[in-house]
Design a protein around this nucleic acid. Structure first.
Lengths: 170, 170
DNA sequence: TAGCATTAGTTTTAAAATGCAACTAACTTT
DNA sequence: AAAGTTAGTTGCATTTTAAAACTAATGCTA
């Protein structure tokens, strides 16, 4: 069964998931952040415990989508390694958001943790918080989800995100 | 072939992906944010275009993991609907991060967009930005990825995230 | 340079996941 | 009560997945 593509969906989330939404893809992307930035095929395979054919396929998808690129292992060499592109590095907020969600709701009793620290004080960074363009922190009450037409000011539909909490109380 | 579980992985990203990493799961979660908060089975199926057996399975996983819960459609009624839990609402930063990544690198020429707006000025919220616990905005140069033991200050390993960009230039 | 070791895939196979469509019991509406 | 709707359940064919073996290409060393 060919998995249904989300590319026809109006939401950018769906576009994103078409690239990074397959089993293993985000973990592969994470591995590039855990290291010097350049990873070889067998390094990825070792650290992830993924089958070679699946890793080959996922790397191709990520390369075709411009998230990673191939670079020679050595100047003039033929062996290739992979590294994140700017588009791939741009996934850092997604990675952080998911890690913070996982940290907060984690049920395992593991001993080892992966974290993002601020270099100046070596403390974990704060939970990601939405801000307005003017820099004001936004809570759930301050935001709404909308559907609109590109280039037009008129909104087709709009939902306060706070309604989620009211539905719970009611 | 049973998909390999990531639950043994040390990273919270993997824990998160075990819950929300299956094809369709994040889109289902998104659908709760696009509406009044309570969704019924057929509403989800209609808007997503997903098969009933797959939707049933995904809803079970998300319910078992505590991301959504079942509520009666009407007081005293038997029909059930679903709504996000607090744990589910906590996925908002993840949703926003992925939408913003998708928006920035979007290649389709679709006309309809889903966005998160600040209610005070009806402008799109700013791109998510990491901050230190003191509230200072952090760039890639200001952060590092680390592996450490729970409860200990000693770091096992540490990588500057900026190394990713240096690897590109070099 | 030759020989050996390593690497990055490729292929085969069996089990599981997926999507489509039909079915059905339970629930709701008229 | 009858009719319509709903939330699954089931059967089936195709695709995906993971494990393991294979192989050509590359790199290293004597």
């Amino acid at each position: 069964m060919v998995k249904k593509s989300f590319s026809g969906d109006i939401c950018s989330l769906a576009q994103a998931l078409d690239v990074i939404g397959e089993w293993w893809s985000m973990l592969i992307v994470r591995d590039f952040f855990l290291g010097a930035g350049v990873r070889r095929f067998e390094q990825l395979r070792d650290s992830l415990g993924i089958s070679r054919n699946i890793l080959t396929e996922r790397l191709r998808t990520l390369t075709d989508a411009g998230v990673i690129e191939r670079v020679p292992v050595k100047e003039g060499g033929r062996r290739q390694a992979y590294q994140l592109t700017e588009k791939g590095i741009d996934l850092l907020p997604t990675l952080i958001a998911m890690m913070q969600w996982g940290d907060r709701w984690r049920s395992d009793s593991g001993q080892k943790f992966v974290s993002v620290l601020a270099r100046e004080d070596h403390q974990p960074i704060a939970p990601l918080q939405a801000h307005s363009q003017a820099g004001k922190p936004l809570s759930i009450d301050d935001m709404c989800m909308t559907v609109h037409i590109k280039g037009e000011d008129r909104l087709i539909e709009e939902w306060p995100i706070s309604a989620l909490q009211k539905a719970k109380v009611g």
